[in-house]
Computed example of a mutant assay.
Amino acid sequence: MSKDKFLGEFEQFVLLAILKLDEDAYGSKVRQLLSESIGRDVTIGALYTTLDRLEGKGLLQSRIGEATSERGGRAKKYFKVTAQGQSALKRSKQALHSLWKGLALKAVH
C-alpha cells in the first residue's frame, strides 16, 4: 500500500452516496440518501464539513448550479467524485475485504 491515507467510514458513505446520485448529488439529496440507506440522520452542517474536507483533499469537485425559485433564488452546489476519490474508495474496499477474508464472527452472549 502507498502512503495514501484511508478514508473514514462516514467519508466512504458520503463518497458512495455521491456516486449513486450521479448528476443529482447536492447536499440535501446526499443527506436523504444516507438516511434511507444506512439509517443515519446527519445534520446538514456535519455533511457540509465533510464535503468541504473531501473537496480539500481532492476527492471531490463541486460546481454551482442554476438559481431556482424553489430555493428562493439560491443555487444548489453539486458534487462529483474525482478519479482520486474513486481510487481512495477502491483502496478502502480492498483493505476491508482483505481484513474480512476468512474471518467469521462469533456470537456474543
Score class of each variant (00 low, 15 high):
1 M>F: 08
2 S>Y: 06
6 F>W: 01
6 F>M: 03
8 G>P: 07
8 G>D: 13
10 F>S: 09
11 E>K: 00
12 Q>V: 15
12 Q>M: 11
15 L>T: 06
15 L>V: 10
16 L>E: 13
16 L>S: 11
16 L>G: 09
16 L>H: 06
17 A>W: 01
22 D>P: 01
25 A>K: 00
27 G>R: 00
27 G>C: 03
27 G>H: 01
32 Q>I: 09
33 L>G: 03
36 E>P: 00
41 D>M: 01
41 D>Q: 02
42 V>N: 03
42 V>Q: 02
43 T>F: 01
43 T>E: 05
43 T>Q: 00
45 G>N: 06
46 A>P: 00
48 Y>M: 02
51 L>P: 08
52 D>F: 06
52 D>H: 06
53 R>E: 10
55 E>R: 05
56 G>W: 00
57 K>W: 10
58 G>W: 01
59 L>E: 09
61 Q>H: 10
62 S>F: 12
69 S>W: 07
70 E>Y: 09
70 E>W: 07
73 G>H: 09
75 A>R: 02
75 A>P: 12
77 K>D: 09
82 T>M: 04
83 A>E: 15
84 Q>G: 14
84 Q>D: 15
85 G>C: 12
86 Q>G: 13
88 A>E: 09
91 R>F: 12
96 L>T: 15
97 H>V: 15
98 S>K: 05
101 K>C: 08
102 G>H: 04
103 L>Y: 11
105 L>R: 03
107 A>H: 09
107 A>F: 14
107 A>G: 13
107 A>P: 11
107 A>K: 03
108 V>L: 07
109 H>T: 14
